[in-house]
Nucleic acid binder design. Structure first.
Lengths: 182, 182
DNA sequence: ACAGTTTTGTAGCGATCGCTACAACAGGAA
DNA sequence: TTCCTGTTGTAGCGATCGCTACAAAACTGT
């Protein structure tokens, strides 16, 4: 049992890296196993099934992302809407965190293709994002902060999508335009 | 040859409806054929391969969407940024056009999973959107309109994603918030 | 009627999918 | 030693994937 638990965390970390590097395009059971340096047979020994393996990896990814967000705007500090938009849009397009947002958009689209696999974890992470943003908005009422947070999350997601369907330059253009307000 | 051409257009229309109804989750060759009321063998007789069939359907879908956009804001007319945002965000969440934007987000995510299948057509449609928006923005310089258009497209895409990863109410909240400016 | 082309059905290819049955191994406890 | 639990490899299941070979049928022009 000791070995199994150890491998669950080790392999989970390698799966996380693999997903960040290649997205969901190479996420079959055998491909995941190879990327993690184990056999497909053993991957299903460490994890209940493919969904369990993916959920574990996504959990680690969400934790990473939350950490990065907290580094940028620590808990307890609040920013003006403009400053918060500036911070999170920069993060969305930053080289270090970009893979996270790419995977995030893939996971959202996954909700439409395979809800049983993605819906639960995606909605969980999304509501986490929303409360994170709300807690860091200064001023206004709780209702206004809720609306602001929804808009900001839409902006982040929109930027990530825009970069995919056009190019990085266009996404940066949109980001800069967002920062200066409508 | 006459029959083949006729079927190409008829089956293409049925594929379009199928994709709008079910997205990309039921888009295997056999599933597409069944939905179009033909055998998989015949689907590959009417179209070169699966990519050809999908591209044909996406072409029809893009044409539909362009038509809907032109109905909302005809060519030649220009709107203020606020009014244009109001118009397109309403369109994004309207029951009639929502399936189009859902499929649009699936196609964008498809670029990451299967670039050879989706990249070309997605970038084509995206640049079409951008020029459509630019042409309908009043005032400003060409450069400012380009940035504005990029931001608006990001907003639309972001709303579509937000609705998937949270719910319709949250997406409407974000849309209303976008309309009143930052 | 005939030949030639277009259209269609049957059947199956090789590859990959998620997953499992089964037996062989290891290591520690008795 | 013996047994038992935990770990691993081999091999393969049934299903689906995109696509194709082959030949029969249907249609066309002469």
């Amino acid at each position: 049992m000791a070995r199994k638990d150890q491998q669950r965390t080790d392999v989970g970390l390698r799966l996380k890296e693999h997903l960040l590097n290649t997205g969901l395009s190479r996420a079959s059971l055998r491909q995941l196993a190879t990327a993690a340096g184990v056999s497909d047979r053993m991957l299903l020994y460490y994890f209940d099934d493919k969904a369990d393996a993916l959920n574990t990896a996504f959990g680690l990814i969400a934790a990473d992302l939350t950490l990065a967000l907290d580094m940028a705007v620590p808990e307890g500090t609040t920013l003006s809407m403009t400053d918060l938009i500036r911070t999170v849009t920069d993060l969305t397009l930053a080289p270090d965190t970009k893979p996270y947002f790419r995977l995030w958009t893939e996971a959202i689209a996954g909700v439409l293709r395979e809800p049983e696999q993605f819906e639960q974890i995606v909605k969980l992470i999304a509501s986490g994002f929303l409360t994170w943003i709300e807690a860091r908005l200064e001023g206004g009422t709780p209702e206004s902060r809720q609306a602001d947070a929804a808009m900001i999350l839409a902006m982040i997601d929109g930027l990530a999508l825009l970069e995919i369907c056009t190019d990085e330059a266009t996404a940066r253009l949109a980001a800069e335009r967002m920062k200066q307000g409508v």
